[in-house]
Computed example of a mutant assay.
Amino acid sequence: MRLENKVAVITGGAKGLGQAMAELFAQEGAKVIAIDMTELLYENSNVEGYKLNVSDSAACREFFDYAVSKYGKVDVLVNNAGITRDAMTRKMTDEQWETVINVNLKGVFNLTRYFGPHMQANKGGSIINISSIVGEYGNIGQANYAASKAGVIGMTKTWAKEFAMKGGNVRVNAIAPGYIMTDILKTVPQELLDGFAKQTMIGRLGEPYEIANAALFLASEEASYVTGHTLSVNGGMRL
């Protein structure tokens, strides 16, 4: 029970990577609040669903007050919510750019601005930001997504410094997944998926539980001396 007596908040928790992390964290003893724009697609007695648009600053403040009031503390924050609106740069609209930045970058800031100082005041906690291999290496047709996920890495390094000040002891890390078999990839033609798999050293695409296992490590005391780090979980892939 590596997260026994811990309270964890996971954004984008209704399905995919968020669901895998929420259910694993609950299995390891945590009380989990899974945030999403939709209802949860699963049932777990230790996972509470909460509908929230992370790009709404005022709503994020209300959620912070709710979570701390109900549970008394939050020990782990996983900023996982993210979207794509792909287009070549010359064709990308303002709406495509702003929507991705608002969710993937501003949304991460909106919650961390409250939970980071809360953990710092409590002298401990773990913040895990889900970046992407695209944030590390870029990708054609994803300038908005790459910018947001690279920005997440920059904020991770900054917060690792800020929230450790004055004995805060808050660890802040990022995970940069490669191509993981979630619903998003189910719309991609099989020949492209096969090509992605061949770009990895492992020879296959990843599964949600493999990202969840990485997040569990960073959330637990097993990673007590790991902060300011970006953990690439991509099967050795290079775009």
Rank of each mutant, 00 (worst) to 15 (best):
R2G: 09
N5I: 07
V7N: 09
G16T: 11
Q19R: 14
A20F: 02
A20K: 07
M21S: 03
M21K: 00
E23S: 07
L24C: 06
Q27W: 02
Q27C: 08
E28N: 04
K31W: 06
V32A: 08
T38R: 02
E39M: 06
E39V: 02
E39G: 01
Y42C: 05
Y42Q: 02
E43A: 08
N44G: 03
K51A: 05
N53T: 02
A58D: 13
A58T: 10
E62V: 04
D65L: 13
Y66K: 12
V68L: 15
V68Y: 15
K70L: 13
K70W: 10
Y71K: 08
K73M: 12
K73G: 10
V74C: 13
L77R: 07
V78Y: 08
N79D: 05
A81D: 03
A81I: 04
G82T: 01
G82E: 05
G82D: 00
I83N: 02
R85A: 04
D86Y: 00
A87W: 06
A87S: 02
M88W: 01
R90F: 11
M92F: 01
T93K: 02
T93C: 04
D94Y: 09
E95Q: 08
Q96F: 01
E98F: 13
N102P: 07
V103T: 10
N104I: 03
L105E: 11
K106N: 11
N110E: 09
N110G: 03
T112V: 08
R113N: 12
R113I: 10
R113E: 15
P117E: 12
H118Q: 14
M119H: 08
A121H: 12
N122R: 14
N122M: 14
K123F: 06
K123A: 15
G124Y: 01
G124Q: 10
G125N: 14
S126K: 09
I127C: 11
I127Y: 11
I127M: 03
I128S: 11
I130Q: 07
I130F: 12
S131W: 14
I133F: 06
G135K: 10
Y137E: 12
N139F: 06
N139T: 10
G141D: 15
Q142I: 07
A143E: 14
A146Q: 15
S148A: 14
A150M: 13
V152P: 01
M155E: 09
T158D: 04
T158S: 15
W159K: 07
A160D: 11
A160I: 15
K161L: 13
M165W: 07
K166E: 12
N173M: 06
N173E: 07
P177R: 02
Y179D: 05
L185P: 13
K186S: 10
P189T: 00
Q190E: 15
E191R: 08
L192V: 09
G195R: 00
G195L: 01
K198H: 04
Q199W: 01
T200G: 11
R204P: 01
R204W: 02
L205S: 02
L205H: 10
P208E: 08
L216I: 01
L216T: 00
S220G: 01
S220R: 05
S220T: 05
E221I: 00
A223Y: 14
A223H: 04
S224K: 12
Y225K: 09
Y225G: 10
V226P: 11
G228V: 12
L231M: 10
S232P: 05
V233M: 11
V233K: 04
N234F: 08
G236C: 10
G236D: 12
M237T: 01
